[in-house]
Design a protein around this nucleic acid. Structure first.
Lengths: 143, 143
DNA sequence: TTTTAATCAGACAATTTAATCTGGTTATAA
DNA sequence: TTATAACCAGATTAAATTGTCTGATTAAAA
């Protein structure tokens, strides 16, 4: 295995990045997102519903409805989606699975891993997703 | 979720670290490892069996049997256990779950994440587990 | 030689995560 | 006003992971 994000979270991140490349006025039906990103339609629907509850996404019901970001991409960070879907526990728990891993009860790799984890957190929280627009467009084009 | 290693792998890493603190002559029954590390007995047995197949651990059958490391701790790295149990795929696949993430088809965080992943790999492969003996002893004492 | 305490093999059960299905509700567009 | 195309809610299924059980085999110790 060895995973960082759950499938739900990966799909959620992809969908939010995708929506950040769309005109802010228009809504994307889940079917479109499903097609563009090769994610099972029902599954991405559920994920978008939960992101709607979290206030990251807005939904418009009824015919020609769909989803759009609830805020401008310059107000959204990757960590927001991670927090909403997977939570932030992993940034505060032992990578080796030891109980009560803390500075005074450290596991053998506590310091090194802590540094890495901090860097990962920074990577997810330092930039807003509008910074990723071009790269996202390039990536989506070739899927 | 947001996990790095599977439970199997976490337990395997813990068990190997534990064995590295034992006298090299003596074998540890899986029940002892289970008790010391609070890991379900049957589960850690299975994991140790698979590590035996991988050549990281040696088993002695019959009464007063058990497990010991197949090599000296100065010849074993954490990455060896990870490779044996979880495999190394995650060090070569997209953290956002995009298909075919590569230098010429990068995902939006390809470079930053690549750097982190390299650091994680280095952390797991640069030091042999004999370097962790003291810290492991300290950690195990308080479990 | 017999008892005992261990690994080993493989099936099984439980839990979690991933994915699908069904039917209802909503609001646009014809 | 009606048909349609979307979200929504909850149940269900499927797959993967985690954990357990049973019985066989092994080898040391009594």
């Amino acid at each position: 295995m060895t995973v960082f994000f759950s499938k739900r979270c990966e799909y959620g991140l992809q969908a939010v990045l995708f929506m950040s490349t769309q005109e802010s006025a228009c809504v994307c039906p889940s079917e479109e997102i499903s097609n563009k990103l090769n994610i099972p339609k029902e599954f991405i629907s559920k994920i978008l519903q939960s992101l709607t509850e979290s206030g990251i996404v807005e939904s418009k019901k009824g015919k020609s409805g769909g989803f759009k970001l609830a805020k401008h991409p310059s107000k959204i960070k990757l960590i927001d989606i991670v927090e909403a879907i997977d939570g932030l526990d992993s940034f505060n728990s032992c990578v080796l699975g030891f109980p009560e891993c803390s500075p005074d009860k450290p596991c053998p790799v506590h310091d090194q891993w802590g540094e890495l984890r901090t860097k990962a957190y920074e990577m997810l929280s330092s930039e807003t997703i509008d910074k990723f627009k071009e790269k996202t467009l390039n990536k989506i084009r070739i899927i």
